[in-house]
């Protein structure tokens, strides 16, 4: 089990999981643990010779047992693919999988938050290149979500409105909009911390994956794919990113929390990365090298 240590200065939990030092690190394609097990080859995490979508408990979990869960979501058996290369229909099925796992993990006794995410690219620190995401079921509400939920609750008390609905409403002029249909919007928020940060959100108020209807799912899948295609066209190469789904916590927050997905690509140009350094890490103050209006226009044009 991990050790949870409380930082009284930031009032945040730090999770200590030393066994993660030994996790599989950049295996060759023939030794990929997320591929199906090929006849005559060593068994991978997935013993069958093929699969559609597979989810399993992380072998090197940050949370397990009574603390929570860490799951790996294998999007496809195709080692050389990516989330953005999946069909809209396949992404709709992935949404159903994310929803299933969110609901099931949210029912575990000590789980306070279910977080669906993907790290993509070596630049982000990915150690397995096979297309996959992860789900963390935390025994606490993580700090970023905690602050977001608190701000949303304050805004709701003060105005009676959802904070994120108001954020979306501010995008009426379209200047920071990357894509939009009648259900979802993709935009670079005015407060983006990364040059090509994008938020995807349902334009109608929804608290989490479980609140999306079939039309929402279809639009979500289509707009997610289009954003990822734009990302890979941006510098004519697979763009690394963190994809972070901000859902309501299990059993609460549906009224004031607005489900959305945040993307943080580390690139500020094709060959230059933004590193979190003195101001960001030591002081928590992000300095961003680009205006959201300009990067949104770039992405919109792709």
């Amino acid at each position: 089990m991990s050790e949870l240590r409380w930082d009284p200065l930031t009032e945040e939990w730090v999770t200590v999981a030393p066994w993660r030092q030994d996790r599989t690190y950049h295996p060759s394609a023939e030794h990929c643990p997320l591929c199906p097990t090929r006849p005559g080859m060593e068994e991978t995490e997935i013993p069958e010779p093929d699969y559609y979508i597979a989810v399993f408990e992380n072998r090197f979990p940050s949370y397990t047992g009574d603390q929570g869960r860490c799951e790996v979501v294998c999007y496809t058996p195709d080692h050389d693919s990516s989330l953005g290369e999946q069909s809209v229909d396949h992404i709709r099925d992935l949404i159903a999988v994310w929803r299933d796992r969110t609901t099931e993990l949210g029912r575990l006794a000590n789980v306070k938050y279910v977080y669906v995410f993907e790290n993509r690219g070596e630049e982000i620190g990915v150690t397995l290149s096979h297309p996959h995401g992860q789900i963390y079921a935390y025994p606490f509400v993580p700090p970023v979500l905690q602050r977001e939920l608190a701000a949303e609750a304050r805004h709701m008390r003060k105005t009676g409105r959802c904070l994120y609905c108001d954020v979306i409403d501010d995008e009426r002029d379209g200047i920071r909009t990357v894509l939009r249909d009648d259900r979802w919007i993709a935009f670079v928020p005015p407060f983006a911390r990364w040059p090509y940060e994008v938020h995807l959100a349902p334009t109608n108020h929804r608290g989490g994956l479980a609140d999306l209807d079939e039309e929402d799912d279809l639009s979500f899948a289509a707009i997610l794919k289009r954003v990822l295609q734009k990302y890979d066209r941006l510098f004519q190469k697979p763009l690394p990113y963190v994809m972070a789904m901000h859902q309501k916590p299990p059993g609460r927050g549906a009224r004031h929390h607005h489900f959305h997905v945040e993307f943080y690509p580390p690139n500020r140009t094709r060959d230059k990365l933004k590193y979190l350094a003195g101001s960001e890490l030591g002081a928590g103050a992000f300095i961003v090298d680009a205006r959201a209006e300009d990067t949104a226009a770039e992405l919109r044009a792709l």
């Binding site: 069958e48 699969y51 979508i53 989810v55 159903a96 299933d100 999306l212």
Partner: peptide
Amino acid sequence: MRLATEKPRVKKRVVKKADGRYLIYFEKVS
């Protein structure tokens, strides 16, 4: 809001791995 009558898009099959961890195969409902 989702309707309870909606037909699921995927069905799941849970198996136990040799070390006790679970593995879930999600298959497309045809």
